[in-house]
Design a binder for these strands. Structure first.
Lengths: 347, 347
DNA sequence: CTGAAAGCGCTAACAA
DNA sequence: TTGTTAGCGCTTTCAG
């Protein structure tokens, strides 16, 4: 145990404070503060002496104290569903880049699609006094955020709208995207089309289902009960859902999947199936173009979703006080083969 | 503009403090603190009155102030290369889960493979007084961290070792993995094998190259200069590198790629090539099993990497003072077809 | 069981 | 140009 410490013990291990630096440099506390923060009004000579003390002591400003005094933490929180889901990677990164451009750090966490965990996380972030919050909601009731928002925590929702409160939101056009996906399959001759989506609690799941229903109705096609399956994205659940649609009395000839997790599993199931079945997936997935057939998808732009949300957040932080807005980004259908497979001959 | 505020203005928008709660409940400040923190020694009746005030005022404890006083922030920092890279998603998530289990929040950021940005981020995290740091290094000199570590910031490196300082590190067996990948190709009859890797500044790139060289040497095979290409993972660079190896005077019949980003581009190039070329990729990639041929990979377990690192970090935070350790996790070769393609007939 | 006082490390406001 | 004083909102200490 080396005994080099001649500095007073303090709670951060053994960190020098501005006071220590000031003492060593033989100047006042405020002078150190000025040097550390690059404020004007310090002789080059004094500055040099202070800087020397800083280096010698290994001083690093304690931002916790600074935050307490200044009232802004220069950090924002991002709550998403799953940090490991590739869909959220680009979104996360885009938010980070905007935050960085504004000198803010990013604190983030996964709700794991659990409303309670979402709330717990969000409130923990509020206790840390993040300046703003970007939330991909898991729950559908965000009234718990009202006092926070009233207290000045800027909040933007992405990917799904807030529940029961009025707030900024950035969405992809789930309804339109799903509708065009289903219409695409119909245009290629399909009449019996299945929809495998996410849990009905999730807004996008419902919207995509609605898009599918609308396209079917527009084409005058009835939907058999067995053709719609909402639920978790667990591979087993998806596997069963797809198998069910393929095996029933009115087997589908095409499937529309509700998100990237579902698509990946559906691709696996269909690859092993004895008959060609058409597939359109919501969300683009890596390597989709190289599969045989390529996977036709309705792509959303996750990075733009994140960037737009973060920019909106910083507008709010910079004082924008207009009414909450709702931005809906378009989706894009990318035909790669799987969505253009014609209905297979009757069994 | 509603004028409901009869509370004193303070800097966080308009947030009530413990003092406000105390005043309203007609109790002392410390009593509020006790209730908020669930400390014993408060009459049920008093507690009820305080709780009522808390709810009415929408009070939320200011953790910044708490942190200043207590010295621990209950947050850890994670610096990785790119939040959008699917390889880091599971790692990130695993770290988050461990942090959560320990009641800590996760602050994270991307170094974008830029040593300066890494340092900037790390020091910003230190200024926030994160309790600990998990770093996937971009740079190769971490002496800038010495004062921080000495001051008590626990630090664990993952995926790549620290440069010029002694610290805990969790790695995958890059050397062994690459060696087995190359040996696998050799066992399948290849003699001219190329290696396309990441930038030579990156430790794993060098280790994997070394694994490749060792396997070749073990088999008594010479390596032509054109067969090794290190550089960025930009698709264009990889495309050119692969094309070069395929076109030279001594064209390769098989390729070993150095990470997931490189593999994805190599798969694209080879899919468009007129000749079958064998491929083994470092890192598993989603849907690799469904391509034709399936992509043979050397898989590392990113989640375990992250979990192990986080657990080590919390051991340190809980006082573990043993010498820095180095953990090397095994990799696993998954044969799916592309690595078992025999050398193609001479042109 | 309860509360008053001191102080965490910093910055704002003012004085010298 | 420099330093002093008074907090930021909380927890710790110690006295009622």
């Amino acid at each position: 145990m080396a005994d080099t410490s001649h500095r007073p013990e303090n709670r951060y291990g053994n960190r020098p404070t501005m006071k220590d630096v000031a003492a060593r440099a033989g100047v006042g506390l405020k002078t150190v503060s000025r040097v550390v923060n690059g404020e004007p009004g310090v002789t080059p000579d004094t500055e040099r002496r202070v800087q020397e003390s800083i280096d010698a002591l290994g001083f690093r400003r304690n931002d916790s104290a600074r935050v307490l005094r200044k009232g802004r933490t220069a950090s924002i929180g991002l709550v998403l569903e799953d940090l490991a889901d590739p869909f959220y990677g680009p979104l996360n990164r885009a938010v980070e880049e905007v935050a960085r451009a504004h000198g803010a750090l990013l604190i983030n966490g996964s709700s794991a699609e659990d409303p309670e965990r979402e709330q717990e996380l969000v409130l923990a972030l509020c206790a840390r006094r993040v300046d703003g919050l970007i939330v991909i909601p898991a729950g559908d009731d965000h009234r718990y955020l009202e006092p926070e928002i009233k207290a000045g925590v800027a909040t933007v929702f992405v990917d799904r709208p807030a529940g029961r409160i009025d707030a900024d939101v950035i969405l992809s056009d789930s309804f339109g995207g799903a509708r065009s996906g289903a219409a695409h399959l119909i245009a290629h001759g399909h009449r019996r089309i299945g929809f495998v989506g996410d849990q009905p609690r999730i807004h996008t799941a419902i919207e995509r289902l609605r898009g599918y229903r609308t396209a079917m109705a527009d084409a005058g096609l009835a939907i058999h009960d067995d053709w719609v399956a909402l639920g978790t994205t667990a591979p087993d659940r998806v596997r069963d859902a797809v198998a069910g649609m393929l095996a029933g009395p009115e087997p589908v000839t095409a499937i529309l999947t509700g998100n990237n997790r579902v698509t990946v599993t559906a691709v696996r199931v269909l690859a092993a199936y004895h008959h060609p079945v058409a597939l359109v997936g919501f969300d683009d997935i890596e390597l989709a173009d190289l599969l045989e057939p390529g996977v036709t998808v309705i792509a959303q732009d996750a990075a733009t979703l994140g960037r737009t949300a973060a920019e909106r957040l910083f507008q709010r932080l910079d004082g924008a006080a207009d009414a909450p807005s709702r931005v809906v980004l378009p989706t894009r259908l990318i035909a790669r083969g799987s969505g253009e497979i014609p209905p297979s001959a009757e069994r």
